[in-house]
Structure formats: structure tokens, C-alpha cells
Amino acid sequence: MKRLATFFLVAILLLLSSCSTGPERSPGGSAPSVSVSQGAAGSTESMERTPPSQQDTKEREEQQNMDDKRTIRIVMDSGEILVELDDHPGAQALYDLLPLELSFEDYNSTEKIAYLDDELATYGSPDNCDPEVGDLCYYIPWGNLCFFYQDFRHSESLVPLGTVISGGELLEQLDSQPMVTVESAD
């Protein structure tokens, strides 16, 4: 009986000494990051370990998402309009069509519209929006792009594609020349 008690005591001491040697090292040699949350009384309620490789991957993905912002340029005689595209399949489909030569016309003293030769693939994209000044959208039933230079009401079958980030003052002039060039600004 005395031997059994001694065995358990030695096992507990070995276990405690191995726990106090510091954080485990990953195969790459760096310590994993530790996230600690404090409870109401200030005690540690949970500890979440993120292996370095997962943490690095997450940081790279976040940086890539910031770098993946697609910007297009609408080139006119009087200047250019820069549009940051949204992150969904419809906006990507427009980006994939570039470069384009388009002819814009005024519609309803609210927007400038241009028809695309082919239907834009919008599956998986928002199919309604409440457009504001500077919004670029795609109207599914007619197959046209539309730049809003006036606010408009909520509309179904109107896919938001992006927002003007520069040159918004030129929107009303989009129909002043026969053709404009739409190209990648990246």
C-alpha cells in the first residue's frame, strides 16, 4: 500500500513539473499564441490556443481580402471615374468582361445606363438594393449597367455592383460622348 501511494505521489510530481516548463513548442519552433478571456470576477475562464500556422494563415487571408478590392476605371474625355466593386459573383462577372467600350444614355433624370452585349451572371449576388448617388448597379430584366447620379428608391432585380470612390462629379456627363472605356484600375 505504501508503494502504491509513493508511485501516485511521484506520478503527480512528474505531471506537475512537466506542466510548469512553459508553453509547448510547435514543430517550427515558435510558441503558439494564447487568447485569454477574463470573467466578471477577473478570473481566467477559458484559454484558446491557436497554432502559429493557423494564426499566420488567418492573417494572410485578411490581408489578401484587403488587397483583393477590385477597382475599375471609366475613362472619358473629361476625366475618369473610379469605382470600387463589391465582393460577390455579379461584380466579379463584370470585372471579368473588362475592358469594355460602352455608350451611356440618361434614364429618368436619375441614372446613366449602358447595355451589355451579354447577360451578366448574377447568381449568388444580392438581387435588390436602395441605390444612392455614386452606386453602380446592374438591372437584370433589361441587362444594363446603371450609374445613379440621383438617389432612388428600393428596387428589386437591381444588383449592386460597386460605388464611385473618385470622379463622382463626372457621372452626369457619362452620356456626353459616344463611347467610354471601362477597364481595370488594378
Rank of each mutant, 00 (worst) to 15 (best):
M1D: 09
T6I: 13
F7Y: 10
A11G: 08
C19W: 12
C19N: 09
S20M: 09
R25E: 08
G29Q: 10
P32R: 05
V34N: 03
V36Q: 08
S37K: 11
Q38L: 13
A40K: 15
S43H: 14
E45I: 13
M47S: 15
M47H: 05
M47P: 01
T50K: 02
P52W: 07
D56K: 15
Q63T: 08
Q64D: 12
M66A: 14
D67C: 00
K69N: 12
I72E: 01
V75S: 13
D77Q: 12
S78G: 12
E80C: 03
L82M: 12
E84T: 11
E84K: 11
D86I: 00
D87W: 09
H88F: 02
H88V: 04
Q92H: 08
L94K: 07
Y95M: 01
D96S: 06
L98K: 05
S103M: 01
Y107R: 02
Y107F: 14
T110M: 10
T110R: 13
K112Q: 12
Y115E: 11
Y115Q: 10
E119W: 03
L120H: 04
G124L: 06
G124S: 03
S125N: 06
D127Q: 15
C129Q: 06
C129S: 12
V133S: 07
V133A: 09
L136N: 02
N144E: 08
N144S: 09
F152C: 00
R153K: 10
G167N: 04
D175T: 03
Q177Y: 13
P178N: 07
P178Q: 08
T181D: 06
V182D: 02
V182L: 12
S184N: 06
